[in-house]
């Protein structure tokens, strides 16, 4: 029971309290780029969730069973980026075969997931926090994806109504999006300290 409680807390913590987008600034590029329409934002979030779960788990396994026993930590970053690129390629092939419509609507953004900082960032943070439990790694990776989806969907919702708002000319586009994002992080700061 205790174990489930710990995992649940870890999940809530990574989704809300330590949300990668709001507190660590990871994944800002797609967050600002794709969040124009809510359905696309959700699709992007799901793709990222899948890749991040896969990549987080795989990099943890490689780290603990290949790199650490053989003292190859120097090559850590290169291994991580290779695993992520491979996972993205897998998702791309899967989507093209089974969901061609979704694949079309992603366009350039799908290969760009490789360079999404949220994914590499999560792998690095798992390493930095010294998580040595496999199940916790899976939960954290999945939670990070859900947190990203949450952030990008909230942002898309706000931006859909921003279109009809009266924004000063020079602030249209990226500036107002950044300021909105700032106010959103202010709201999420309310959760800080809820879970350590």
């Amino acid at each position: 029971m205790d174990k489930i409680y710990v995992l649940l807390m870890a999940f809530i913590s990574i989704v809300i309290v330590n949300n990668l987008v709001f507190t660590k600034f990871l994944g800002i590029c797609p967050y600002l780029g794709v969040s124009g329409r809510i359905d696309m934002a959700f699709g992007m979030g799901m793709a990222v969730t899948f890749v991040v779960t896969l990549a987080g788990t795989l990099t943890w396994l490689i780290d603990h069973f290949v790199l650490m026993p053989y003292g190859l930590e120097v090559t850590r970053y290169i291994c991580y980026i290779l695993v992520i690129a491979g996972a993205v390629q897998l998702v791309e092939m899967y989507l093209r075969k089974f969901f061609p419509l979704l694949y079309e609507s992603f366009g350039i953004f799908l290969p760009l997931i490789t360079t999404n900082c949220a994914i590499l960032g999560l792998c690095l943070f798992i390493n930095l926090w010294g998580i040595d439990n496999f199940i916790e790694t899976v939960v954290l990776s999945f939670g990070a994806g859900i947190g990203f989806t949450l952030a990008i969907c909230i942002m898309a919702g706000i931006r859909e109504s921003l279109k009809i708002a009266d924004v000063p000319d020079s602030l249209k586009g990226a500036p107002i999006t950044l300021i909105t994002a700032g106010l959103l992080t202010l709201a999420f700061m309310g959760f800080a300290g809820m879970i350590k």
């Binding site: 600034f25 000319d169 020079s170 990226a174 500036p175 950044l178 700032g182 992080t185 202010l186 700061m189």
Partner: peptide, 25 residues
């Protein structure tokens, strides 16, 4: 203190980008 937080980063950069847009136009 808020300038140290993520809020400060987002809003400062947003305002700088706005200023740059203003200068260009």
């Amino acid at each position: 203190a808020a300038m140290r937080m993520p809020v400060g980063a987002f809003i400062t950069l947003g305002l700088i980008l706005g200023l740059v847009n203003l200068i260009t136009t």
